[in-house]
Simulated assay, not measured.
Amino acid sequence: MTTHALPEAWRRGLYETIARRRDMRAFLPDPIPHETLARMLSAANQAGSVGFSQPWNFLVVENLDTRRQIRAHVEQERMRAAAAFSEERRAKYLAFKLEGILDAPINLCITCDQERFGPAVIGKNTIPETAVYSTCCAVQNLWLAARAEGVGVGWVSILEPHVLRTILRIPDRILPVAYLCVGFVESFPEQPTFEAAGWLPRIPLKNLVFHDQWGDPPNSKLRCALEADQGNCARMSGPKTDDTSGIVT
């Protein structure tokens, strides 16, 4: 059997990066070198897209007054969202730091042009939303590239797209998909913030995988493999890599 698998060290690096990605809220003020940002944007630009439509744009936001306007809107939405929780949960929700808009040296708005290349795009006629899904792939690529570079990313989702359009002068036909805070961080936590805080539990992977029909459990061999791995995509056979030095031991 032939294989096109990448070298094991490359695969381990990929899985480690995925496992160590975090949604960050606290940032250092240190500027991001333009070369580093360019590599991250290049990774985002290499995402798969429906019909090779590449529907994304990347709006780098550095102006402090602009960011203050966006943060003021986010704070309004944060308070409005708090009303959806019970009193006990509301207090815990309000204690979370949910954005670093003014702390991070760069904010990044990633948008989707659902009309790019016109109405006839291969693969999009039946499911037009695939343009948005493609843009989310670009977001994930950038996020993983940032983690590999030691740069933190935080996705701010408590805002209204029409407000972003107004503040950033985005045309009406363009959909803001992700508003990201981007910057170096003091450290990356071992667990996602909401998992560590007990806000929501991590769902075991074996409970999320079905076989042939919705709701039918995976076959015994796959289920055994899922239970053995317990969702840790970074675990691989073979020599291990030292967490800090990257040296294979």
Results as ranks from 00 to 15, higher is better:
residue 189 P to S: 03
residue 166 T to H: 15
residue 42 S to K: 12
residue 132 V to F: 15
residue 50 V to C: 07
residue 20 R to Y: 10
residue 100 G to I: 04
residue 28 L to Q: 05
residue 4 H to T: 15
residue 70 I to C: 03
residue 150 G to A: 07
residue 124 K to N: 11
residue 215 G to K: 08
residue 238 G to W: 07
residue 139 V to A: 08
residue 162 H to D: 15
residue 46 Q to Y: 10
residue 141 N to S: 06
residue 130 T to W: 15
residue 23 D to Q: 13
residue 36 T to N: 09
residue 104 A to H: 06
residue 224 C to G: 12
residue 50 V to H: 04
residue 36 T to S: 09
residue 47 A to C: 05
residue 49 S to H: 01
residue 224 C to E: 14
residue 1 M to S: 14
residue 210 F to V: 14
residue 21 R to I: 09
residue 229 D to F: 13
residue 249 T to N: 14
residue 53 S to L: 03
residue 220 S to C: 12
residue 57 N to V: 05
residue 143 W to A: 01
residue 172 D to P: 09
residue 246 G to F: 11
residue 138 A to Q: 00
residue 4 H to A: 14
residue 89 R to C: 09
residue 206 K to L: 12
residue 59 L to Q: 03
residue 83 A to S: 11
residue 18 I to R: 06
residue 232 N to S: 12
residue 68 R to L: 08
residue 164 L to F: 06
residue 44 A to Q: 03
residue 24 M to F: 12
residue 243 D to M: 15
residue 203 I to A: 08
residue 203 I to G: 05
residue 26 A to T: 14
residue 159 L to P: 08
residue 115 E to C: 14
residue 53 S to Y: 04
residue 221 K to V: 15
residue 204 P to H: 01
residue 67 R to Q: 03
residue 43 A to N: 05
residue 177 V to M: 01
residue 178 A to M: 02
residue 239 P to Y: 09
residue 17 T to Q: 12
residue 79 M to N: 07
residue 109 C to V: 13
residue 179 Y to Q: 05
residue 213 Q to A: 14
residue 228 A to V: 12
residue 188 F to T: 08
residue 122 I to W: 15
residue 60 V to H: 10
residue 63 N to C: 08
residue 211 H to K: 12
residue 13 G to A: 08
residue 87 E to Q: 09
residue 192 P to Q: 07
residue 208 L to Y: 07
residue 133 Y to D: 13
residue 45 N to C: 04
residue 183 G to I: 07
residue 140 Q to A: 11
residue 195 E to M: 12
residue 161 P to G: 08
residue 190 E to M: 13
residue 81 A to R: 03
residue 69 Q to V: 02
residue 115 E to D: 15
residue 55 P to W: 04
residue 219 N to V: 05
residue 227 E to N: 11
residue 73 H to V: 07
residue 154 G to V: 01
residue 6 L to H: 13
residue 228 A to Y: 11
residue 211 H to Y: 13
residue 106 I to T: 13
residue 61 V to P: 00
residue 170 I to M: 08
residue 74 V to N: 03
residue 197 A to M: 09
residue 188 F to Y: 13
residue 178 A to Q: 00
residue 147 R to Y: 09
residue 139 V to W: 08
residue 107 N to A: 12
residue 166 T to D: 14
residue 156 V to M: 02
residue 137 C to R: 06
residue 173 R to Q: 13
residue 62 E to P: 08
residue 221 K to G: 10
residue 200 L to K: 11
residue 74 V to C: 02
residue 79 M to Y: 11
residue 214 W to A: 10
residue 142 L to S: 00
residue 84 A to L: 14
residue 43 A to M: 02
residue 208 L to A: 06
residue 154 G to Y: 04
residue 193 T to K: 10
residue 238 G to H: 05
residue 196 A to S: 11
residue 11 R to D: 13
residue 230 Q to I: 12
residue 21 R to H: 14
residue 59 L to R: 09
residue 195 E to P: 05
residue 35 E to D: 13
residue 232 N to A: 13
residue 17 T to M: 10
residue 163 V to P: 04
residue 106 I to L: 15
residue 68 R to W: 05
residue 28 L to A: 08
residue 74 V to P: 02
residue 202 R to L: 03
residue 164 L to P: 00
residue 73 H to T: 00
residue 122 I to E: 15
residue 209 V to M: 05
residue 129 E to I: 15
residue 128 P to R: 10
residue 189 P to C: 04
residue 85 F to H: 05
